[in-house]
Design a protein around this nucleic acid. Structure first.
Lengths: 134, 134
DNA sequence: TTTCTTGCAAAACATTTGCAAATCG
DNA sequence: CGATTTGCAAATGTTTTGCAAGAAA
């Protein structure tokens, strides 16, 4: 059998592409980078691999702005902040306060397994260029 | 001209549908409810209206699980929690601690305008049925 | 009249699926 | 062989667009 649930060549290659990217690429961007480095896989294979990798917990799927999911290879717990001026996405490592999680638990009765936080704002660069404009 | 940026009939009707829904409907669900109450608008009109309402700040567009955006008419600042067992979405009103926002500001240099938080976990009902199972 | 909105169909885009061929154990 | 993954093309589902027609100022 063809290695049930293991890192086949496409899966491994795609994982490496994501790990080497620091900008949360979309499936289309992953396709591009694969092409650039001479590897070619079918779109279906890329999506299959992305789903597999997500289910295995090796990457994270992010739904930020726009139509397409983005993929994140950084497994440390972290969040994201998107600049509403230029669309740039940065990572946020400040940890969610436990006190707040307790509040949410007692408010909702849920067992909380994970939080995904998306901040929206204006990045330092755009704040500067706006300040100079006026 | 046809009232630039005003609440035309479709926009108002759609806003009311969303306000009356307590489950963050998708565009398709909004279409259904419009049909149920005898109103018919083109899909394009519904999407145009949703974009308009979002840009005006009268509703919020949510990208949670699944393919389609959901729309939220509750304008109080709040967040969401989705049950990974049954897919149910609830609202969370516990406010993000200011201290954490300050941390994020100093970490990123962004001016933060908004936060969207999506918790994932298991809702009380599903926790119960799981406990009873075994 | 002028500008904006609506409706319809078609287009665009992201993602999934069906199935045959390839692959590994 | 037997289970699984891959590749391709076609299908699906969501959202947008082009353009003619309608409505309000």
């Amino acid at each position: 059998m063809a290695r049930k649930g293991q890192l086949t060549t496409p899966r491994k290659t795609i994982l490496e592409v994501i790990a080497a990217s620091h900008n949360h690429p979309t499936a289309a961007e992953i396709m591009e980078r694969l092409k650039e480095q001479g590897a070619h896989f079918a779109y279906a294979t890329v999506y299959n691999s992305l789903r597999y990798l997500t289910e295995e917990g090796l990457i994270r799927e992010l739904k930020l702005e726009g139509d397409s999911s983005r993929y994140d290879g950084c497994l440390d717990v972290h969040h994201h902040i998107v600049c509403t001026e230029c669309g740039r996405v940065d990572e946020v490592f400040a940890k969610v306060p436990d006190k707040w999680l307790e509040q949410v638990t007692s408010e909702t009765g849920y067992r909380i397994d994970q939080e995904q936080v998306l901040f929206k704002g204006v990045c330092p660069q755009c704040r500067n260029s706006k300040a100079q404009e006026h």
